[in-house]
Lab assay of single mutants.
Amino acid sequence: QVNIAPGSLDKALNQYAAHSGFTLSVDASLTRGKQSNGLHGDYDVESGLQQLLDGSGLQVKPLGNNSWTLEP
């Protein structure tokens, strides 16, 4: 069960990665100043990332080996 409060997208993504045990490689300029609506409930990694990114204009991309990145 994930419980991440709304706020900074950077912070939300870092909390989610730490909670879910995956690696997220992101260029900080992509997420700077963006906000997230947070995340509450049970999600697989990709669904949770998509939910956190909702409205940010960013997309999640798998890199393999439980690693992910973001792209515009």
Score class of each variant (00 low, 15 high):
Q1P: 13
H40K: 13
N66M: 08
Q59D: 08
E46L: 15
A12N: 05
L63R: 06
A5T: 07
K34M: 08
D54H: 14
Q15V: 07
A18L: 13
G38A: 04
K11L: 12
G21T: 03
A12D: 02
L24V: 07
E46Y: 15
V2Y: 11
G41D: 03
L13T: 01
N37R: 13
H40E: 09
K11N: 13
Q51G: 06
N65W: 08
L70F: 06
D10P: 04
F22C: 09
L49Q: 02
G38E: 03
P62C: 12
T23Q: 10
A28Q: 10
H19M: 15
N14R: 15
K61W: 07
D42A: 13
V2W: 10
S67P: 00
L24G: 04
D42C: 15
K11P: 02
S25H: 14
L24P: 03
S8H: 06
S56W: 05
T31S: 03
A12L: 09
N66E: 05
P6W: 05
L39P: 00
D54C: 15
R32I: 12
N3W: 13
D42E: 12
S20G: 12
G41E: 01
S36G: 02
L49P: 01
T23Y: 10
A17K: 08
S56A: 07
H40F: 13
L53K: 00
P62I: 09
D54L: 15
H40I: 14
L13W: 02
S20T: 10
P72C: 13
L30C: 11
L70K: 00
H40C: 14
G64K: 04
P72K: 10
S25Q: 14
P6I: 05
G48P: 01
I4V: 06
D44F: 05
S36K: 00
V45K: 04
D10A: 12
V26C: 11
K34L: 12
L30P: 01
Q59G: 08
L63F: 07
Q50D: 06
A17Y: 03
S47V: 09
G57A: 04
S47N: 08
A18N: 09
N14D: 11
L39A: 04
N14E: 15
D10T: 10
Q15N: 07
S47D: 09
L39G: 01
S56D: 01
G21V: 03
G55M: 06
G64R: 04
S29V: 10
N65I: 09
N65M: 09
L52P: 00
S67R: 13
L39F: 02
D44Q: 06
F22N: 01
R32D: 10
L24I: 13
G41M: 03
L70T: 01
S25M: 14
Q59F: 11
T23K: 09
G48F: 06
G55P: 01
L39I: 08
T69Y: 09
L30D: 04
D42G: 07
R32F: 14
L9F: 02
N14Y: 13
L70H: 03
L70I: 15
S8G: 06
K34I: 10
G38L: 03
Q1L: 13
H19S: 11
S29I: 10
S25W: 14
S56F: 07
T31E: 01
E46T: 09
S29M: 10
S29K: 12
I4Y: 03
N37C: 15
N37V: 09
Q35Y: 15
V60C: 14
N65K: 11
Y16E: 00
R32T: 10
L13V: 03
L9G: 01
G64A: 06
H40M: 12
L30F: 07
T23S: 09
Q1N: 12
L58G: 02
A18Y: 09
E46R: 12
D44C: 08
P6N: 03
L49K: 00
L53S: 03
L52V: 02
L30V: 07
I4R: 01
Y16V: 01
A5N: 08
